[in-house]
Design a protein around this nucleic acid. Structure first.
Ligand SMILES: [Mn+2]
Ligand SMILES: [Mn+2]
Ligand SMILES: [Mn+2]
Ligand SMILES: [Mn+2]
Lengths: 217, 217
DNA sequence: ATAATAATTTAGATTACCCTAAACTAATGT
DNA sequence: ACATTAGTTTAGGGTAATCTAAATTATTAT
């Protein structure tokens, strides 16, 4: 059975290696799990010894099939719990991430299956992120971020990149949730901010924010 | 913030000191948390340094007000989660204890309040044990165990002492759940087993089992 | 009062995870 | 080729929780 810490490292490696192609660098990994590079090196050696990643000194780490499955199971739990907290317990979408960071480490196959059933097998979490199924299959959405959307084009918001409370609260204010229709009216060259229509409502979005909104045309 | 382990020790001390009167002995505590006496001594010193217990060498440990509140909060979480698992997720009452042992250590005031609300503020858990409220108030039931019930007397089952899966499965079979009416028909002097009526059904209960059934006249 | 026994504490290690500081490697610029 | 630099690893320790074995204390029996 994997420890709390091992699970967090695997999850971080998964998120940092865009779809498993590029190797994950030690410094990036350390930053992601909020430790120092020396600690990340130690853990990466340990995970390699357990055949959860392949690792080459000074080069980086890649998940093995086994490691990827483990990572996806942690992500599955995280996103199912977030969905539960919003849908069943009435949490706001900006309040769930921290609690889910704890709940994702509960070890019980039965619990997560029952939870999935209780929620009626949701496809995405409150932030629009896809939930891996029991076999670790995850549907990859070929989404682009809002700042790359052309002027005049319409799209549907699918997900939000950043799970920080401050961004989510801001998006709440302007009404930018997954599922909503967005259309770019104008783009300021000076600061790359955009003027858009969100379900008919005119809104102004900074570049910092629009980068974190994922849309599908 | 208390660690996983500290919380488990506090909970064990609470359960071992019948309502806080008697001091808890090191060996008993060690057995309860499944470690060795030496480890229990270390932890007991640590908890005393944090003013969660009072401790006298070779004599034993007692919860302080602060420690008792912490213990009751862990017990509150444990029992609310058990209730959730049975009522919302459809677990059997013999499957919930192990998972609740993990869930009870999730740190989030908001989560537990929301869970309590979702469950409509239950008074007892699936095993009939009282659930402390948000302030740590717990209603003490003056129950006696079934083996002390006199012949011919009727009573209501209020709770089950032991949370082991094998006992709970057995009680399921004979239909002995909290809320049910039980009446002792006969008691065998040889093995102290009893013949009883459980909602009209005639059942035979061994002494080992009847000791673990709590009833209220 | 003394000896035997049971319970408890202390001493000294171990493991997992994390840290700082020093050493090393790979890449880059001159 | 050589020096600089950024990134990474190694060396050496620290803390929390655990363990075994030895020492200590309290209790009971003679
Ligand atoms: Mn999240
Ligand atoms: Mn999410
Ligand atoms: Mn329980
Ligand atoms: Mn219970």
């Amino acid at each position: 059975m994997l420890s709390f810490t091992e699970e967090n490292y695997l999850k971080a490696i998964y998120h940092l290696s865009k779809e498993g192609s590029e190797p994950v660098l030690t410094n990036d990994l350390a930053k992601s799990v909020r430790t120092k590079a020396a600690s990340a090196t130690d853990m990466v050696k340990k995970l390699a010894a357990k055949k959860l990643i392949s690792y080459r000194k000074y080069y980086g780490a890649n998940l093995t099939t086994k490691g990827k499955t483990e990572a996806l199971m942690v992500i599955r739990k995280h996103r199912l719990w977030e969905t539960f907290l919003v849908q069943a317990l009435g949490f706001m979408w900006d309040e769930v991430h921290e609690v889910a960071e704890q709940l994702e480490h509960i070890h019980s196959k039965r619990l997560i299956e029952k939870l999935d059933e209780f929620l009626n097998y949701p496809k995405t979490d409150p932030h629009g992120d896809p939930i891996p199924d029991r076999n670790g299959k995850i549907q990859q959405t070929a989404a682009i971020s809002c700042d790359q959307l052309e002027k005049g084009k319409s799209a549907i918001i699918t997900a939000v990149k950043d799970s920080s409370g401050s961004l989510l609260k801001l998006l709440d204010k302007i009404g930018a949730h997954p599922g909503k229709k967005i259309k770019i009216i104008a783009c300021e060259p000076y600061d790359k901010s955009v003027e858009a229509l969100l379900d008919g409502q005119r809104v102004f979005i900074s570049h910092e924010v629009s980068k974190n909104i994922l849309v599908k045309e």
